[in-house]
């Protein structure tokens, strides 16, 4: 039987890209997941994108903040998508 979660099972011990709610993105090595998409990632880099509107010009100012975390449990309900590592071969 093939199911969508197979893709994630094959990404265990690989670096994955995880898009979350509130314009948060994570990149890290996947060690564990369950059917809710709760996860444990290691060597995580989190990128938070914020957009603010300049009051005078009305231009949107996009800023990105990144931080690193050694080991992180992520609750599945904030996860939007999971992408396996890009293969360059």
């Amino acid at each position: 039987m093939e199911e969508p979660l197979d893709l994630i099972r094959l990404s265990i011990d690989e670096r994955v890209y995880v898009k979350c709610r509130n314009d948060r993105e994570l990149r890290g090595r996947l060690h564990a997941y369950d059917q809710h998409l709760n996860m444990v990632l290691s060597d995580v880099e989190e990128t938070i994108t914020t957009t603010e509107e300049d009051e005078e010009t009305g231009e949107e100012i996009v800023s990105k903040k990144t931080r690193s975390v050694g080991m992180l449990f992520v609750r599945g309900d904030i996860i939007v998508l999971v992408s396996p590592p890009l293969r360059t071969s």
């Binding site: 979660l5 099972r9 011990d13 060690h31 080991m71 992180l72 449990f73 609750r75």
Partner: peptide
């Protein structure tokens, strides 16, 4: 539980091999 976004853990408290095996078994 439902209000948690992340739990940051000290990497040395985690046996990643064991965790991966348990994940493969469960799924």
């Amino acid at each position: 539980g439902s209000v948690v976004r992340y739990v940051q853990i000290d990497p040395k408290d985690v046996d990643t091999e064991l965790l991966q095996d348990a994940t493969r078994k469960e799924n």
